[in-house]
């Protein structure tokens, strides 16, 4: 049953939003239905598929397993912050070049997970890349083109310092 609403303030892609929500509201629902940022998708609501992955203070997290109120004061990054149709971000561009998406539903979650990976994981071999990607499910591509995109991005980044 609905409980007393709570006010939270979050930064999403650099824009601060203040809202009052039920404490049980999922962060994924908050982003999608309260803020209208529908680029973040919900594939399983169990934290298994990774489609809803966003960054919370720079680290990847499942927005379907996070309550919106837990994100109070947190800096959130979503796929909308990566680039726009006329100016795709680097990961988005690599996905397009390598045909690393088909239906596109899982793609925002992959892009956000890869953002974290590129910041924090060595990604020196295909095995490491596949291991890092294994928290996200894609049903269309068979992963090979996604691996190709990440390999290129990791090479471009160079070794982690």
């Amino acid at each position: 049953m609905p409980e007393k609403k709570i006010t939270l303030s979050v930064s999403v892609n650099g824009v601060v939003h203040t809202a009052t929500v039920e404490p049980r509201m999922l962060l994924s629902d908050f982003l999608r239905h309260e803020l209208g940022l529908t680029g973040t998708h919900v594939g399983c609501e169990h934290g298994v598929c990774g489609a809803c992955t966003v960054l919370l203070d720079g680290r990847s997290a499942r927005s379907c397993l996070t309550l919106a109120v837990q994100a109070d004061g947190v800096e959130i990054e979503t796929v909308e912050g990566q680039g726009s149709i006329d100016r795709l971000g680097r990961i988005q561009e690599a996905f397009r070049q390598h045909h690393a998406l088909q239906c596109g539903f899982c793609t925002p979650g992959f892009i956000m997970a890869i953002t974290d990976m590129l910041r924090h994981h060595p990604l020196e071999s295909d095995d490491q890349i596949r291991e890092a990607l294994s928290g996200n499910i894609c049903r269309c591509t068979g992963y090979e083109h996604i691996v190709n995109a990440v390999r290129e991005l990791a090479k471009e980044r160079g070794p982690l310092t």
Binding site: R32, G39, V42, G83, L88, Q92, R96, H99, G104
Partner: peptide, 17 residues
Amino acid sequence: KRTEDPRLLAGVGQYVD
């Protein structure tokens, strides 16, 4: 390169939900 991609990559595709 696919013409579908930019909207899907930018997170502005439109699925029913």
